[in-house]
Amino acid sequence: MSTPSSRHWGLEQIVAELRASREELHRTRHPRGIRELPSREAIVGIVNGLRAAMFPTHYGAPDLTDETVDYYVGHTLETTLRLLCEQVRRALRFLPEHAQTSELELVERAFEITRALGTELPRIRALLVSDIQAAFAGDPAAQHITEILLCYPGVLAVMHHRLAHALHRLGVPLLARFINEIAHSATGIDIHPGAQIGASFFIDHGTGVVIGETAVIGERVRLYQAVTLGAKSFPSGSDGALVKGHARHPIVEDDVVIYAGATILGRVTIGRGAVIGGNVWLTHSVAPGASISQGNVREGGRNDEPETGKRGRK
C-alpha cells in the first residue's frame, strides 16, 4: 500500500488551472499586478495603540503613574504612528488616483495623512468621552465609566468608527473599512466608515446594528440592538452597475431614540427628538418630536402629526 507521501496529487495540473483562473477566467487581482496588502494583524495593533494613547489608564500599561503617563503616551504614539504610516502607504496604492504615483511620493503622502490623523486624536478623544458619558447617562445598569470602557460593545464599535471615519475623510477608505470590519467581527455592530455621527452617541446592547455609508446622525442619539439605518433601493447606471456614493441612507436629527429591531430605509429624515419604537419599519420621514410605534406607522406617508407620550427608558 502506498503512503500519502508517495502518491501523486496532480499538482502540476492544479497549479496550472489555478493560474488560468487567476490570470484569465476569474481575475480578482489589482490591474497593475501584485500589491502589498494592508495587514489585519498590524491594523489591530494600531487601533489598540491609538486607544491606549487616548485612554492610557484603561487600555495602556497597568503600572502607569502621573510621572510616567506622558512618556508612555508619547512612546506609544511614536510606535503606533510609524506602523500606521506603513499601512496607509499600502492602502493608498489601491486608489485609482495613485496607480501611477511614485513610491517616494506615496511614502510622503502616507506620512502627511498619518500626521494629520495624529493631530486629530485630541478631537476624537473628546467625541469619545461624550459617547462614554452618554452611555453612562443612558444606561441605568452602568456602574461607572471603567465598566463602560472595558465592557460595552457599543462603545468599542464607536471607538473604532471614530478612528475609521477620520481616515475615511483623509482619503484612505480601504484602511478605514478594515478598522470598522475588525469592530464588526468583534461586536456584531456594522458601521460604515463614511457614516457621519455626532457627539454623545450611544448604542445600547448593540448586536445587529447596521449603519450605512451615507447615514447622518446628529447629537445625543441613542440606538438599541438590531437597528438598521439602511438604503431602500440601489440605482444602477446604463451599464447595469450600481451607482456608488449617492446619498441613500437616513438622516437622524438630534436627541432621537430608536428602539430594538427598528428598520429605517432610504434618504428620509427622523426629526429632532423623535422616538421610534421597536420593530418599526419606516420608509418615510418622521416629524420632530413624533413617537412612532408599529400601531401608528402610516405606510408611504409622512407623519406630520407628532404623537404624544413619554419617551421610554430601559
Rank of each mutant, 00 (worst) to 15 (best):
228 T>S: 10
229 L>T: 00
256 V>F: 02
232 K>G: 13
275 V>E: 13
218 G>F: 01
275 V>Q: 12
253 E>M: 10
236 S>L: 14
284 H>I: 06
215 A>E: 00
285 S>Y: 08
211 I>V: 13
231 A>S: 11
198 G>W: 08
247 A>N: 14
206 G>H: 08
246 H>Q: 15
205 H>A: 09
199 A>H: 14
243 V>G: 06
242 L>W: 10
271 G>C: 06
292 I>P: 06
283 T>R: 10
256 V>H: 00
233 S>G: 09
207 T>A: 09
205 H>Q: 12
190 D>K: 04
251 I>N: 14
273 G>F: 12
273 G>S: 12
196 Q>T: 15
211 I>M: 05
216 V>A: 12
258 I>T: 07
289 G>L: 11
267 R>N: 11
235 P>S: 11
230 G>C: 03
254 D>R: 09
212 G>F: 01
209 V>F: 03
291 S>M: 15
221 V>M: 08
245 G>F: 03
239 D>R: 06
226 A>H: 13
275 V>W: 09
214 T>F: 07
197 I>G: 05
190 D>F: 04
279 N>H: 13
258 I>F: 09
254 D>G: 13
272 R>L: 13
287 A>P: 01
278 G>C: 13
275 V>T: 15
262 A>W: 08
236 S>P: 11
206 G>I: 03
272 R>G: 12
230 G>T: 00
202 F>G: 01
275 V>I: 14
255 D>G: 11
247 A>S: 12
240 G>D: 03
237 G>M: 05
207 T>G: 03
282 L>A: 02
265 L>Y: 10
288 P>H: 05
259 Y>D: 05
263 T>V: 15
206 G>V: 05
253 E>A: 12
280 V>I: 00
212 G>I: 02
226 A>V: 02
265 L>I: 10
